[in-house]
């Protein structure tokens, strides 16, 4: 990461009433990066994106794209960024084609001039170009919004939760499109509440309550997870949930267990102890004494969601 920063957020603060949406956030993004902002609603992702795209002014701090200041040079900033807001905000009563032409014209360009850039995406909705945008399915609206955000050939693409509420397959296809855009040299900032999408980014910022929990490559974040992680399963999940209750430092019998959370068909337990074999034996005996059968316990590598859970504030603050 010795390449110079292209997008810089310096000590950004933003407050809405009594809510601190962003508490002193600083991040550098490198040119050409696919950078993910991962966190739940209320983390501050949208506010950060609105500041970068010059739609909201920060209370303190500064942000730059290259040498452009998002406050002073807002007109140039708007030319060099393409923004896809979280909520569908194209014109429902214009057709697909009309929306695209409208956005091209606002930026003093034409669909024809930049067609190459959007062809991969637009081709998929072109058969419906005479349909009004309001009548499109969710997936098609998303593709049209992305086409409109790209039509002026921006250097930076800012996508606010493009995959929220989208099914697993369409999400996968959308990320493939983003990779293609990245290959064309566009720097991409994308936010998502889906932790599993972190692995598709070059680097990610994990965010919660207006603060950064971690900023790094997904692999490095996973590597910095402290403790040994075990995945546990038995023949009765409902019993397992009460015998291994979720939370932090919740198992009286196992003071070394720092967190217990369910992941799909398994329960993940983190131990701050090196003696994995001993723990597995103790845990197996404990579960047997509670009447569990077909007990499976195996050491596993953490995923981003394990890391996020470990880095989060205590639930009491929620």
């Amino acid at each position: 990461m010795t390449r110079p920063a292209f997008i810089r957020f310096n000590h950004i603060k933003k407050q809405y009433g009594t809510v601190e949406a962003l508490k002193d956030v600083s991040i550098d993004v490198i040119q050409g990066e696919l950078f993910g902002f991962i966190g739940p609603d209320g983390a501050g992702k949208t506010t950060l994106f609105r500041i970068l795209t010059s739609l909201v002014l920060p209370d303190a701090g500064s942000a730059f794209i290259g040498s452009l200041d998002v406050v002073k040079d807002y007109k140039k900033i708007r030319k060099s960024t393409g923004y896809m807001p979280g909520r569908f905000s194209l014109y429902s009563d214009l057709t697909v084609e009309e929306n695209l032409q409208f956005y091209a014209r606002i930026f003093k360009t034409s669909v024809k001039e930049n067609y190459d850039l959007i062809s991969d995406i637009y081709r998929q909705i072109e058969p419906f170009k005479k349909r009004r945008a309001g009548d499109l399915s969710g997936g098609m609206k998303q593709k049209l919004a992305l086409s409109c955000a790209l039509i002026h050939n921006p250097e930076v693409l800012v996508l606010d939760e493009p995959t929220t509420g989208v099914d697993a397959v369409s999400r996968m296809e959308f990320w493939e499109l983003l990779k293609k855009m990245q290959k064309k040299g566009i720097t991409i900032l994308v936010s998502t509440p889906y932790m599993d999408e972190a692995s598709l980014c070059d680097r990610v910022a994990l965010m919660e309550h207006g603060e950064l929990l971690a900023v790094d490559t997904p692999a490095c974040i996973e590597k910095s997870f402290t403790g040994n992680l075990l995945a546990v399963k038995s023949n009765q999940m409902y019993g397992l949930l009460s015998d291994l209750p979720a939370g932090r430092q919740v198992l009286e019998q196992f003071p070394d267990a720092t967190q217990v959370f369910r992941f799909g068909e398994f329960i993940h337990i983190t131990f701050q102890s090196e003696n994995t074999a001993g723990i597995i034996e103790d845990l197996t005996n404990y579960l047997k004494s509670k009447g569990h059968q077909e007990i499976q316990i195996s050491p596993i590598k953490p995923v981003i969601e394990d890391c996020f859970l470990a880095l989060m504030d205590q639930p009491a603050k929620r």
Partner: peptide, 10 residues
């Protein structure tokens, strides 16, 4: 949709 990973589990 959109809730944090701990609340989701709760």
């Amino acid at each position: 949709g959109g809730v944090d990973p701990i609340t989701r589990r709760q």
